[in-house]
């Protein structure tokens, strides 16, 4: 897994709430057997009309907004467990998603793919959305080591929470398989204990 320590980037605002994984990657694109190419289809039905023409009103098609941070409305990633949603966001180039609330399975999938979900307060999210919508060149500094979100050249600073174990994994690029395999003896001992 790719390491993540710090990212300074402009951001893309997507204020819609309850963005579900069917929007992030529609089911008809789940037929692949590898992890490649999902980025091309991220938010497909919001980016394109059914006839294939570009939906100019959707934020990803607005050239004013660029960057590898997505700032999204409350309850981002709800719905299906499809990790394809995380592969699609990563494939498109997102490294950080900021929201006031993340769905459980999506959050885990993001972390397992080197995407950092940063959960902030409702107020902070509102401020960020307003700020980047008005000033698209606003840069956000995400410092995982210190668990701090900062607007470059602005007073806004917000601490964010992350599981200590997951933080170590992200900073070092470890994944859970390595860790679980190192505990094989304990797992086998558990199995034997359960038989009696």
């Amino acid at each position: 897994m790719e390491k993540f320590e710090r990212l300074i980037s402009t951001a893309i605002p997507l204020p819609t709430e309850n963005v579900d994984t069917d929007q992030i990657i529609p089911a008809r694109f789940l037929k692949a057997t590898d992890k490649k190419g999902f980025g091309d289809n991220v938010f497909k039905d919001w980016r394109y009309h059914k006839d294939g023409s570009i939906n100019k009103t959707f934020v990803l098609n607005n050239s004013k907004y660029t960057g590898s941070i997505l700032v999204a409305g409350n309850n981002f990633g709800c719905g299906s467990s499809r990790e394809h949603a995380a592969w699609a966001l990563a494939g498109y180039g997102f490294k950080v998603i900021i929201s006031s609330f993340f769905a459980d399975i999506f959050k885990g999938n993001a972390l397992n793919n080197g995407i950092l979900p940063v959960q902030v307060s409702e107020d902070c999210l509102k401020t960020l959305l307003q700020l980047i919508t008005k000033k698209p060149d606003t840069k956000i500094d995400i410092d995982l080591q210190n668990q701090v979100l900062q607007i470059v050249g602005n007073v806004i600073v917000e601490k964010f929470e992350i599981d200590t174990y997951k933080k170590v994994c992200l900073i070092n690029g470890y994944d859970d398989i390595d860790y679980l395999l190192s505990k094989k003896d304990k797992i086998i001992a558990y199995e034997q204990e359960q038989q009696f």
Binding site: S81, E83, H84, I105, G108, Y179, L180, L181, I187
Partner: peptide, 17 residues
């Protein structure tokens, strides 16, 4: 429900974190 990375973890260890 679990994501595919977790499917791989259960394949490898029959466990999840």
């Amino acid at each position: 429900g679990i994501g595919t990375s977790q499917v791989a973890q259960v394949f490898a260890s029959q466990c999840l974190l």
